[in-house]
Amino acid sequence: MRDAPHRFAAIQRLLHWLMAACIIAMLFIGVGMVSTVMPDYLPLIRIHETLGVALLVLVVIRLALRLHYGAPPLPADLPPGIKLGARLSHLALYGFMVVMPLLGLGMLWAAAYPVVLYGGIHIPAFLPQSDRGHTLLWNAHVYLGLAFFALVLLHLAAALFHALIRRDGVFRSIALFPLHDKTTPAE
């Protein structure tokens, strides 16, 4: 059975898993670095900034691919409420991917910190120092970061639900390698 049209393009699947790993790393590094005074703090924050900016570049590419290729349809038998939830949660995930790095950069600019990534890449400031601006961006980065993690967990739960319980081909559509579904697809 060929199911090519039921899957994301290979480049989309690759980006999905690459970014998933990096985002989970970003979330853990984020909460880990702000709760330590040990020497690791410095490399962690440098990795956080560098990887965060790299993810901003990747999400732009990913959104362009998404617009170009689209996405395979969800299973026809999925209840409309769940379908809506899936669409909205995916939209929210893209939103977090775009907004989190921008907030991170903005908050450093608004605090007059130079942003210097690994490789000596210096990102010039596009915002002036501002107490109010920094506070707003900082709070948004912290609280949206936690919300992002919650949504990632929900996404993971849904993915496993599709893969293990519904076995409806949704997980297969994004899997990095072709999977052999042992059950017959639900149709």
Binding site: F28, V31, T36, L160, F161, L164, I165
Partner: peptide
């Protein structure tokens, strides 16, 4: 499968809380 899903979520959330220091009040933050 449901147990596995719950374990993945619980494990993920616990690892996150541990990394954030929420489970280690003795950590010098």
């Amino acid at each position: 499968s449901l147990v596995l899903i719950a374990a993945v979520l619980g494990g993920g959330a616990t690892a996150f809380a541990y990394t954030a220091g929420w489970l280690s009040p003795g950590r010098l933050t």
